[in-house]
Design a protein around this nucleic acid. Structure first.
Lengths: 339, 339
DNA sequence: TCGCGGGCGGAAAGCGCTTTCCACCCTCCT
DNA sequence: AGGAGGGTGGAAAGCGCTTTCCGCCCGCGA
């Protein structure tokens, strides 16, 4: 039976050895031609023979073997709470764009906001010897996480996070507090005094920061809510309306909840912004399509993801912080307070 | 200097050899204890010593080395057009859920609808020796793709796709045509005769199928559009309105474009559904929050992603097809045609 | 008491690649 | 013309793990 003469490698993929043999050169030479770091040159003719043989055999280097030999892999990890959430999807998209510019593949870990799962993924990413990992939706602190992260860093992995995570970790810090402040200033300028805030889960750092920025300006808002979803926003808005009928404005800590609030207001027969103004946060694409168009705070999520990945992949020492600005986008859902 | 006595492995991660030495057993025994496939048993006491040593050294197996030795990796690939698009994000989320049940990690390849990039990712996934790959947004056909895929399959990789892709490939087939038919039936039942359709990129199979299902019932709709985005929908709606002022209904081939159409109708001062009815496709979360609520076709995207991943990971022979039903969700954006 | 077989630990041979080191050959200089 | 030196190909030693195969030791039966 002929061996190296068939076009398709017999079973499984072709190995570098097969390519070398087919080209009549040594393994080392084939390696240098195909993956050589450029430091070493190979004669034109041999190089061509190798390239041809590789193409013929449809050779693709065995990435795990390469990782092992080089002791550096070509994957990076991205940890998100939920990839189906547009907030994280946008961050991931930005990160992936940059990763691909660096010829890296992205391993996405969907933690579903479960701390146990998150720990597990951290370990698996470490097991993969990922070049770096981006903590995009990772609000959990505590001993085991810090240890896992330290272990990862000790083994040469880089870590970056969206939102403060701890020292030594590169972070891109979206200006949640500043955004909250902008909203508060906007609403007070419009004459609103009775303002309700719809919050998300208490433990989430982003929530705390958005709220604290807001309360720097508006000392004692009425607060309700718990779940970071549309339904959570709807329920919280109803609750707020019941408890404080005099409310003239509602600030939902993200756009999803704002959409819910808008629905609740509609159900309650309150006009927006005639009777009640509504503000969201994130400026997801949906904000434009709500009725009325939602006034909200824009975060350049894709840019943030991209920047974090850039931090991860350059060779500077870690521990840097890059602020990401928040910007108020005024649409139709806010207006002057009724007298 | 003491060697194995420190808690944290000196530099880099601990190796199995270090664990074995610390436990006073051989490499083989340590491997059997920590990753043994169960076929072989190890005495209780030794096993405990190994486990303890591993914990102490925070040992995590080197995944690439394991892949190499076992010649089977623990990653699967998911190819999408754009992870920031909620359509693909939902599919990916479903796939990831199942992957994690199988203890697999997911490599996400974002092709940005670029054929060259897509080919490249196919090769890289092959290089990683991914256990399987899911083609979620991959509309490109042609020689090079088929070859790449064949190479992957020949090497033992499984391939599944959302939407027909070719023989031998497991596929989950969303009933795009059926959805289109449902829309057509709904609109004609409401008395609509002059109907405009807003399509996406011509090459996309999903677009073609949705449209063909529709035209089975409504022979000659007015067609416009090209881009699968909100803005594309908006522009196309304006165009349709200009060309066919008598239009009483618009069917946008996805919800994003429907949102744009709704905006265009608002701009043109046409009431929905009073003067013009609007229907979308996909039932993205945004559909509820549009005004009026969007009548659309629901596809269980998460379920589709999950099912595709399940197909990928069971051990049955490939080439199966699983239909995924489409369901009409009637909301406020459709009503009887004006007489 | 001796022999045999089963059970279990260890040595070692890879998995596919990178990279160091060596040897060779050719060219250039004196 | 002879020797030194640069450039280039090849042999081989790993990278960290799995898994086969070997051999030891123990318990049992005759």
């Amino acid at each position: 039976m002929p061996r190296t003469s068939s076009t398709r490698p017999p079973g499984g993929a072709a190995t570098l050895q097969q390519v070398a043999t087919a080209a009549g050169v040594s393994l080392a030479t084939a390696s240098r031609v195909l993956h050589g770091s450029g430091g070493r040159r190979v004669a034109e003719e041999l190089a061509e023979r190798v390239t041809a043989a590789a193409a013929e055999l449809r050779y693709v280097a065995h990435a795990p073997a390469q990782s092992l030999a080089r002791s550096r892999s070509t994957v990076v990890g991205v940890l998100v709470h939920d990839i189906a959430d547009p907030y994280f999807a946008a961050i991931a998209a930005g990160a992936m764009q940059v990763a691909r510019e660096h010829d890296l593949m992205v391993l996405v870990a969907n933690t579903f906001r479960d701390p146990a799962l998150e720990r597990d993924y951290l370990a698996r990413l470490r097991a993969q010897r990922a070049r770096a990992m981006l903590l995009a939706g990772s609000a959990f602190a505590g001993e085991p996480f810090a240890e896992e992260l330290a272990g990862f860093a000790a083994a040469g992995g880089r870590v970056a996070a969206i939102g403060a995570r701890g020292e030594g970790i590169d972070t891109v810090e979206p200006d949640h507090a500043g955004g909250g402040r902008l909203v508060a200033e906007h609403l007070t300028a419009l004459g609103h005094r009775e303002i309700g805030v719809i919050t998300g889960p208490a433990g989430l750092a982003t929530v705390a920061q958005r709220l604290s920025g807001f309360t720097e300006v508006v000392a004692r808002p009425h607060v309700a809510g718990s779940d970071f979803t549309r339904e959570g926003g709807r329920a919280a808005a109803h609750e707020l309306l019941r408890a404080h009928p005099g409310l003239t404005a509602v600030f939902a800590l993200n756009d999803l909840m704002a959409a819910g609030a808008l629905a609740a207001l509609r159900e309650a027969g309150r006009s927006v912004p005639g009777e009640v103004s509504v503000v969201g946060f994130d400026d997801l694409p949906v904000a434009t399509d709500l009725t009325p168009g939602l006034t909200t705070v824009r975060l350049d999520l894709t840019g943030i993801g991209a920047q974090a990945m850039r931090l991860l992949l350059d060779d500077e020492p870690g521990g840097r912080t890059r602020p990401a600005p928040a910007e108020l986008v005024i649409r139709a859902s806010t207006g002057p307070a009724r007298p």
